[in-house]
């Protein structure tokens, strides 16, 4: 039977190396100053705590009976593909939001997700994409005063801009 032993051992190792990195970075900062504890004081002790916890986790995983691994710990290929699509859409938004502007970025973002996450009717895909990108832009920028990014190709929306602003 598969158990959680290996995942926790790996997690403990990652945490231990992370704590070493933090301890090293903390020591680059002042530990103590004439005014009292310096900027490195708190993180240094926290890194030691994390290292101790990583050791405790590794010990528990190795020497205590591990819990069985949940059936859904590793999912289906289709499931991973859906999650991958969501990440891809998000990365697209992160990279293009300030380059293309909110409206054009999200005009790609919404259909990409709607078509990949499940069966959605074509007219709904178009409607939601327009609502989520163009309409949401005006709602947020005009009614909620949240400035969303504009891009160099946003001149295509000029007629609507002229009408609303």
């Amino acid at each position: 039977m598969l158990t959680m032993k290996r995942p926790y051992q790996l997690t403990a190792l990652v945490l231990f190396f992370f704590s070493v990195l933090i301890a090293y970075e903390s020591l680059q900062l002042k530990y103590y100053t004439p005014l009292g504890p310096g900027p490195g004081f708190f993180p240094f002790w926290l890194s030691l705590c994390l290292a101790a916890l990583a050791v405790a986790m590794f010990y528990q995983a190795t020497f205590k009976k591990a819990a069985p691994r949940p059936a859904d710990f590793v999912d289906t290929r289709v499931g991973y593909l859906r999650a991958f699509t969501m990440c891809t859409a998000w990365i697209w938004a992160t990279l293009m939001l300030e380059r293309l502007g909110y409206r054009l970025t999200m005009l790609v973002f919404f259909p990409l997700l709607l078509l990949s996450l499940g069966r959605v009717k074509g007219f709904l895909v178009i409607l939601i994409s327009i609502l989520g990108s163009v309409v949401a832009y005006y709602v947020f920028s005009i009614f909620l005063s949240v400035p969303l990014p504009v891009g160099p190709l946003d001149w295509v929306f000029e007629p609507i801009d002229d009408l609303l602003y």
Partner: peptide, 9 residues
């Protein structure tokens, strides 16, 4: 799919 797309947006 619609709900989660909207949430993500």
């Amino acid at each position: 799919p619609i709900l989660y797309t909207l949430i993500l947006g």
